[in-house]
Design a protein around this nucleic acid. Sequence first.
RNA 1: GGGCAAGUGGCGAAAUGGCAGACGCGCAGGCUUCAGGAGCCUGUGAUCGCAAGAUCGUGAGGGUUCAAAUCCCUCCUUGCCCACCA
Length: 937
Amino acid sequence: MKYDFKKIEGKWQKEWEKAQIYKAKDFSNKKKYFALVEFPYPSADGLHVGHVESYTAMDIVARKRRMEGYNVLFPMGWDAFGLPAENYAIKTNIHPAKTTRINAKNYEKQMRSLGFSFDWSRLVDTTDPDYYKWTQQLFLRFFEKGLAYRAKANVNWCLSCKTALANEEVVNGRCERCGGEVTQREKEQWMLKITNYADKLLAGLKDLDFLQEIKTSQINWIGKSEGALLDFSISNSDFKVKVFTTRPDTIFGATYLVLAPEHVLISNLKNQISNFGEIEEYVLRTSKKTEEDRLKSDKDKTGVELRGVFAINPATKENIPIFISDYVLANYGTGAIMAVPAHDERDFKFANKFNLQIKKVVEFKDARIFGSLKSFKESFISEVKKKWNFRDLNNKEDIFEIVSNEVKDIFELAKNNFNDHSAVLWSDGDVKQILFHSDSGENKIFDWSDGELAKNARNYGLMLGIKQEFMGWGNILEPYLEDGKLINSGEFTDLLSSEKRWEIAYSLNGRKEIKYKLRDWVFSRQRYWGEPIPLAYCDVCSANVKSFGIDPKKNWSEGEKLNPGWVAIPEKNLPVVLPSLKKFKPGEDGESPLAEAKNWIWIKCPKCGGKARRETDTMPNWAGSSWYFLAYALGGSLAYKKKGSFWNKKKLDYWLPVDWYNGGMEHVTLHLLYSRFWNNFLFDEKLVSNPEPFQKRTAQGLILGKGGVKMSKSKGNVVNPDVVSSEFGADALRLYEMFMGPFNQAKVWEVSGILGPYRFLERVWNFGTEMVSSGVSDDKELSVLVNATIKKVSDDVEKMAFNTAVSSMMILINSFYEKKELSVNLWKKFLLILAPFAPHITEELWQKTSIKKSKKIKFIHQEAWPEYDEKLVGDKTVEIVIQVNGKIRGTISVDIGVSEEKLKKQVLDLEGVKKAIDGKEIKKVIFIKDRLINFVI
RNA sequence: GGGCAAGUGGCGAAAUGGCAGACGCGCAGGCUUCAGGAGCCUGUGAUCGCAAGAUCGUGAGGGUUCAAAUCCCUCCUUGCCCACCA
């Protein structure tokens, strides 16, 4: 009988669907397991092979968990708001809701045909008004608690289209559509105060089982840094400049200040600045700078000095110049820095360009001693290696380095151990000496604090890449960025910079301050195809809030107090449904397309009954995906479409947190951070019981097209999973994607690669239909191998080492073929471990074997995951490697657990070993039980 | 410029201190077949050798170790993410 995957796959997909075996039950005696994959944006192109990779992996996990007796929730949905649907609508005038519906249907069909065990009854769709009603309601919570506020933020602005652009629409600083120039333009927008949660989002990571690189990217994005705020007075003025620095210990080396071009001090000091015209011009120029220009000017720092004014360094009391430059950002820290060119790379570059004083205030704590290997006798090298941290720097001159503060001892040792080459040893530490053994046989010691002598020493042939500042002469060539010993620092001189960092700050009336790179989340988009922001603006209420201040009788929420005039649409009027429009294009003046819906905009103010205008901006894509996992737990569309209360904390408590979340590496910063932020906030609002939504998070590697490049329509290298599965079957496609390579690494799609897994399935089919019979009893060797494979596959799935799991099953079927027959018992175990990977073929073959069916259990996917017998995993005998001096001279097969003595006798009698040892004395024997024996001669 | 990965046969890769190249693709040969982009079997890192076997071999160089693809140092290359974050 031929392996007819088309017939088999369709048949079982229908049967499973009929029996509803993947439906998750709220509450159960079984332990729950929530397996989550990122829900896709249903594009017109259909499913991508990258989706298939992620879904197959988690499908395997979900199926295995069910077999292990868990109550599993493995849901799917549509993250359907987005730019492509909107752009398509602009082009064709077809409503995005319609295209979305068609695309989603196609996605569902494709996913079903691949046999994923999703619980389709819980499907969610972010563009469903019944869904985004809750997205809006949750947003209003942020608003009511004062976590949403209006502020000016930059948007990408196309000068020729006169519209705001999404980041995706800006390509190399130009508009994707018309190729016009893109600049930044300020616009008032809604912001979410994610920075309030910066600390929680950082601390919360600690106990989570995320891949380390994912944690790192979250940590870096939050970017916590601890610094000091310090005041610099301005000479002849009452104004002060506050600077933020992480290195207050270097303040004695602060030789100038730099302000961001937007800094208020500039206008405050207008009358005292003699070159104000020049300053104004610079400010104007930088404000016009596009992203592109800034990239170009990366290397070359620009700036202008504020002439006529000076700041006073609070540590040295010296007058220092003030500059403005766009390398200082207005919206980080205080928008002003103290520049320490000797110890900061950017300040160093700037100082060199403008010829400013560079003052060194920190130096290396230990001595760093360099020498040339050729200069010293073996005895010196071996002695030094024993006592100190010796590193061979592997320059052509064989330079080594020792980091130590025992310079004197090392020099003492060196004196007596010269070769007769010219010898070199130098140090930049406490003992500033150079030992030198000249060609004429003379030993000389130079004190290098004496610049002249040291220069002479150099002429003897000492220059082997010595950095000049180590020698204590000449200019500083590069800044020293690390901690070390303070110099030129008043009372703190000779103390350690790391220990005195805060003391120095406090002594100058500074205070500690924690800053984050993380900025508040710009939550407005000037777009049609997103959730309307459920707020309205009312002039009367604005005046009321402002004039009454905080009047408790008026019942103003925090958000309404924070944003005078802005009032929430009441819950009973949600959802605020997107009005249908004729034109979807963003407005010419930077307004959202919704501003064109004249009938929709004007409403009765929910607060005072007057005239109010709706917010016309919509929410960003990230909104709907910030809580979709909660919607699944709450029952999905069936639940949110039903009247009555959708939010059910008992269900959330049961299912959350997500036990395992897998998705793309491209979403491990923003989406992950945003959804953790929402969940943390909902926890504070007592709407959920865990601050952290995801217990474990992993990521798959990209699947690339030919030549290792990203798959894209324009390159014509997109692989359609439908085409592959109609030729080789869903099981073969699933297996191939798991077999391709390490799950978390980027992999290149190779058409011919699928043949291996396909042939494997054919072999499984042929063996199962022809060579398994009830008359055969368990073969001993095969029992052992089946056991080992169960263990291997069980472990590998947990590690996401799917490629080696598949290969171990290939090895197993190859061994079955070698024996030419197999017992039903072992065959069933094999089918069970293969079932999560290839659900259809295993179901068909399972049904063909003589199995007991019960009312409850009809399918292989309802059976229990096979256990392995630890005693049967290994063989009774084991191959031991025999080495002589680390080289392999043979192997020997012995009983497991054999002792060193016994093995030694046996091994030394072997011809090959005798020959290798050649009668020499055995100095040492290394014996690793059941692994290896190594004779050192 | 910064951060994070990764470099192993003709190719995808395995081995995370203990027999480098499992498993698969491709290739070569054999069996079977009217036929095959089918199935089964055998071989397949390089060099030398009829063979047994020997030597070399995991981006380059060095170090630690009885033993290194694996750990440490320096450098090179590629990919991804981020752009002056004090």
